[in-house]
Amino acid sequence: MKTKQISVFVENRVGRIMEITEILGDNKINIRALSLADTSDFGILRMIVDDIGKAVKVLKEKDFIVKENYVVAVEVPDKPGGLAAVLKVLGKKNINVEYIYAFFEQPQDKALIIFRFENPDEAISALMESGLNVSGEEKRGVH
């Protein structure tokens, strides 16, 4: 399912990610998934949290620059070839994946893969057509 992700700009300095997670923790915001992309100078911390609006507000108050955008969460069986099956569908439809990261759900037989597409809706229809479980927001407790 289409879900909102927040991306935070961070310089490569000691303790910056800790500060962000601390701010979210202090405000009782739970991080559901997280990935960090970095260069030698800066990084982008991307997160799926349980309260987007509040997370954006508290981070902005602390002068962080935050961007919200849609990603697609896809449920994949936690077994060899699980992700490959999804990527195959996308490849066939010529849909480019900008980036991708994963996290695991309880019970531990499913992995949840977060995909960033240029056009999330197009990707969702492609995935659903192939009978893949495009994870819903409510189910994930993302609201």
Binding site: A37, T39, I44, R46, I65, V66, K67, N69, E98, R116
Partner: peptide, 15 residues
């Protein structure tokens, strides 16, 4: 300084 207009969620975008 980074701002709302410049931020991107991808490294490619920032570079």
């Amino acid at each position: 300084e980074m701002n709302e207009r410049l931020i991107s969620d991808s490294i490619k975008g920032l570079e």
